[in-house]
Design a protein around this nucleic acid. Structure first.
Length: 421
DNA sequence: TCTGGGGTCCTAGGACCC
DNA sequence: TCTGGGGTCCTAGGACCC
């Protein structure tokens, strides 16, 4: 059996943990750049605020004081997430952190009768120690765990924990679950299924496997099996990331190449630091730049370019330099750039690098790696990005990003590091 | 005026191999 | 007159997740 532990309205709950006056109020948290709604309290859902709404459409609600708005504060959410996960891990060490606010706990070896009381204890402890409310769904597969979690969240009678442990409960739960709410059935597939008469998860599992395979491929078959209690979704524990992306939208359109270079270099530097933190090196560096796609009246341009790195690299100087060369090739005058990003991919463990016969950077690589190691150390101890290469921007990385309703960093500094001073 | 950011996996089709 | 069969690898695009 699996337990899916999922924080309720996570970002809103993080804000409330330090601002209890937000309790019971309609609150939303916005995406980066104060763009659109990415988290809603129960009260704001009840007000009819859809997920993803651009904030300017909610101006009347905000101005009349019925809706409270917060900018996203990822340093805070990351820190609270770590604290919640630590409590879960202490209770059930065999755990897979699935996202910032979710984890699958492997309950193998426990008696079924002890599962619900144990999970209720976890819910209470997380609430008491962190202030974050969570719900837990228990079932034989991850997809059914998701279903159970929905019920635990929706109906207070479950007191935070819902278990699906026999065919009867499963059939009832599936009949009450709209097909679009099933984990793995997205906004593209749901309408297609509905058009064929599949409206609930129960309708879906009633179809033959061959029908599912024809219409949804092997991904759909996995979901179909999982809903019947047959595990088909693999664990993804402790895997190194295959790609790392750092991208941002800008508060204002950028029209100067020098200004965009500062941003792109910054993103490249962040990617390099993330790579080193994972102990990885990247065989490819790519960048993209984009004009504002919501302004059809302006000329549009959204190119992308990749560079092979042989041998793979993780030093800040090498990745920043690759990114700036790529930008030189992509830059065109006469456009206003709204967004840009750097992607490092084809990653391998840093301790397993193959040398290259044609390694142009060999002479300076050792130096670049030593410089990067010192940057990591100083930046960690100083608690802000004190050391950077000259093309990166001064100031912290959130500069130039709109954050008009941001809460303070209650538990960390701006880089998410614990405050030790 | 104002619309996020970061990932994964699968599939189809083309190029290439023998 | 006539053009097989069986693979692999790579890429772009789509779909999904949070």
């Amino acid at each position: 059996m699996f337990a899916l532990a999922d924080c309720n309205n996570f970002f809103v709950s993080c804000e409330r943990a330090f601002q209890p006056e937000l309790e019971g109020k309609a609150v939303v948290v916005l995406s980066n750049n104060d763009g659109c709604v990415v988290a809603r309290s129960a009260e704001s859902k009840a007000l009819g605020v859809p997920m993803g709404t651009p904030i300017f459409k909610l101006k009347p609600l905000v101005d009349s004081g019925r809706l409270i708005v917060r900018s996203s504060n990822y340093a805070l959410y990351g820190d609270l997430s770590r604290r919640v996960m630590n409590i879960l891990r202490e209770a059930i060490p065999d755990m897979e952190v699935y996202s910032i606010d979710e984890a699958f706990l492997n309950l193998e070896g426990l008696q079924e009768a002890e599962m619900v009381p144990l999970c209720r204890g976890i819910v209470a402890k997380v609430r008491k120690w962190t202030g974050i409310p969570i719900s837990i769904g228990i079932a034989g597969t991850k997809t059914l765990g998701k279903v159970a979690n929905h019920f635990a969240k929706r109906y207070p009678g479950y007191r935070g924990v819902c278990i699906i442990n026999d065919g009867d409960k499963r059939a009832k739960a599936l009949a009450l679950t709209p097909i679009g709410d099933v984990w793995g059935i997205g906004w593209r597939t749901a309408p297609k299924l509905e058009a064929t008469g599949v409206r609930t998860a129960a309708d879906f599992v009633a179809r033959p496997e061959s029908w599912v395979h024809t219409h949804l491929g092997i991904v759909g078959v996995r979901t179909w099996k999982e809903l019947q209690g047959i595990p088909a979704v693999e664990d993804n524990n402790g895997e190194r990331r295959q790609s790392i992306c750092t991208s941002r939208s800008f508060a204002e359109l950028i029209t100067s190449q020098e200004e965009l270079l500062l941003r792109v270099s910054d993103f490249a530097g962040i990617c390099a630091a993330k790579l080193r933190k994972e102990g990885s090196v990247a065989g490819e560096v790519a960048i993209f730049i984009q004009t504002n796609r919501f302004r059809p009246d302006l000329p549009q341009y959204a190119p992308y370019a990749v560079m092979r790195m042989d041998p793979p690299v993780s030093s800040t100087p090498e990745i920043v330099s690759a990114a700036s060369k790529l930008l030189e090739g992509l830059w065109r005058d006469g456009y206003g750039y709204k967004r840009a990003g750097v992607i490092v991919s084809d990653t391998t463990p840093a301790d397993a690098i193959q040398g290259s016969l044609f390694d142009a950077g060999a002479a300076t690589r050792d130096r670049d790696n030593r410089i990067s190691a010192i940057m990591d150390k100083v930046n960690y101890e100083a608690g802000c990005n004190l050391l950077r290469v000259a093309t990166q921007r001064p100031g912290h990385y959130a500069d130039g990003i709109r954050r008009e309703h941001c809460s303070p960093q209650y538990s960390t500094d701006w880089n998410g590091l614990l405050c030790v001073k």
